[in-house]
Design a binder for these strands. Structure first.
Length: 454
DNA sequence: TTATATT
């Protein structure tokens, strides 16, 4: 009864709160099933929470701790209403954080002041985070601040921003060595404060040593962050990396497998054994599905948000641009990942594969490799071997009958004409010597040539 | 020059 009345008094009444049992709050949805929470049904055992209870976000949790391990730590501060470790929706992988709601608001406040950044759980190198979950507050209030002087401290940044509102958090982004990356996050109590800071400070000054004036803007949304990560990853491995093929073709299968293999996956990932491609694929399988894996064209990436257009991937629509055929060694890694551009030996078409002296300068998505390089090793070595660790019985991602020549004799060819098949490919290269095998990669869905092969 | 996570 108390709850029902309190709920109504608070103006929060909805259908749920007026349901037959009078319970105004229902914790979580499916998520709480695995968590620690009350068992509905027996009134005498139903824990009730304050109508103004605070849902806390707990961060920096070792991935080997689950709800029952965490419970004792937090019970010190009061009766727990709900405790849920966050897990990846597909892989089940522990995300290293949790949500915690106490029955009483006061318990949450006590826990926050006693624990937030006050201790570090075993195996973590940052202190535990205990603070109201994002869902508890509304609106964009976190700013990204760029073009700071690398010497500036959190206090310096606070001083710069405090005039515009109450700063809840201020963090300088630092590399592993502790050096500032010249940017920071500043979180205000409200959106209005954040906006005021943007209006007053963005572009207002240039810090010593910075290459342009101060940047003050709302921090990236999730979607933007994901896009950024994909771009970075794409740049690191190169969009022509043949390793992309198995993931593209078997993405759905891999995804299903990953659910079954969640535990193994998690431990492998924690151990750091997955290569970037595999880790990327595991983490971003969802997003990857929307991508055309050959990297030339991309499906429109959710142009739903009214915000800024996601940069990068969709921009260079190469297919309409005729490109010279390129021939490249299968190294399993993109050329730029090998450090120096590999042997600039023979270029069949005379076009240099890289922008002169500056392989890193160009947009990786626009780097159309064209040239001949030696095959550094067996096909698909790097990732195939390691993926096997995560997939004990990997699907036949690579045609087993595909023949591979001796080391140094295998070539990766791209920018093939659409109509090229295996035979044409072989024909083209026969004049240069005995061809053991030729294979043009074909999109399984469309049966269209992907315009590259080996 | 966008982090260690936010059902």
């Amino acid at each position: 009864m108390y709850i029902k009345m309190a709920t109504l008094a608070n103006g929060q009444a909805d259908n749920a709160s007026l349901s037959t049992n009078g319970l105004g709050s229902s914790p979580g949805s499916a998520g709480h099933m695995n968590g620690l929470s009350h068992s509905p049904g027996n009134p005498s055992t139903i824990p009730m929470k304050d109508h103004d209870a605070i849902k806390l976000f707990i961060g920096q949790i070792p991935r080997n701790l689950d709800e029952k391990d965490l419970k004792p730590l937090f019970e010190e501060f009061g009766k727990i209403y709900e405790l849920t470790v966050l897990k990846d929706r597909f892989t089940g992988m522990h995300k290293g954080c949790a949500f915690l709601t106490y029955c009483e608001r006061e318990s949450a406040l006590k826990a926050q002041s006693a624990l937030h950044e006050q201790k570090t759980l075993p195996g973590m190198n940052r202190p535990i985070q205990v603070k109201p979950a994002d869902s508890e507050s509304r609106g964009d209030r976190k700013l990204f601040v760029g073009m700071l002087n690398k010497q500036q401290s959190e206090d310096d940044v606070r001083r710069l921003f405090e005039a515009f509102g109450n700063i809840e958090e201020c963090t300088i982004l630092r590399g592993p060595d502790g050096n500032s990356k010249g940017c920071a996050f500043v979180k205000y109590s409200s959106h209005a404060e954040a906006q005021a800071a943007i209006n007053a400070l963005h572009g207002s000054q240039t810090m010593p040593g910075a290459s342009s004036s101060l940047v003050v803007k709302f921090a990236d949304t999730d979607k933007e962050r994901t896009m950024r990560r994909m771009q970075q990853m794409a740049g690191q491995m190169g969009m022509f990396n043949p390793m992309a093929i198995p993931f593209g073709a078997y993405g759905a299968y891999a995804q299903a497998l990953m659910q079954q293999q969640a535990a193994l996956m998690a431990s492998v990932a924690q151990g750091g054994y997955l290569n970037p491609m595999a880790a990327f694929a595991a983490a971003q399988m969802q997003q990857m599905a929307a991508l055309n894996m050959n990297g030339l064209a991309a499906a429109p990436m959710t142009p739903t948000s009214g915000g800024s257009t996601p940069p990068g991937i969709t921009a260079p629509a190469v297919p309409s641009i005729p490109s010279p055929i390129g021939v490249n060694g299968f190294t399993g890694l993109p050329p730029q990942a090998n450090g120096q551009p590999a042997a600039e030996a023979v270029f069949a078409n005379g076009i240099h594969p890289y922008p002169a002296q500056s392989p890193t300068a160009a947009d990786p998505l626009q780097q159309a490799y064209a040239g001949v390089q030696q095959y550094a090793g067996p096909a698909y070595p790097a990732a195939y071997g390691q993926i096997s660790q995560a997939f004990p019985q990997p699907p036949p991602m690579i045609p087993q009958q595909q023949r591979e020549g001796p080391e140094g004799c295998n070539l990766f060819i791209y920018h093939l004409p659409q109509e090229f098949g295996d035979a044409e490919l072989m024909q083209m290269f026969l004049p240069f010597g005995n061809v053991i095998s030729s294979k043009v990669f074909v999109d399984r869905a469309t049966n269209q040539s992907k315009c590259f092969g080996g």
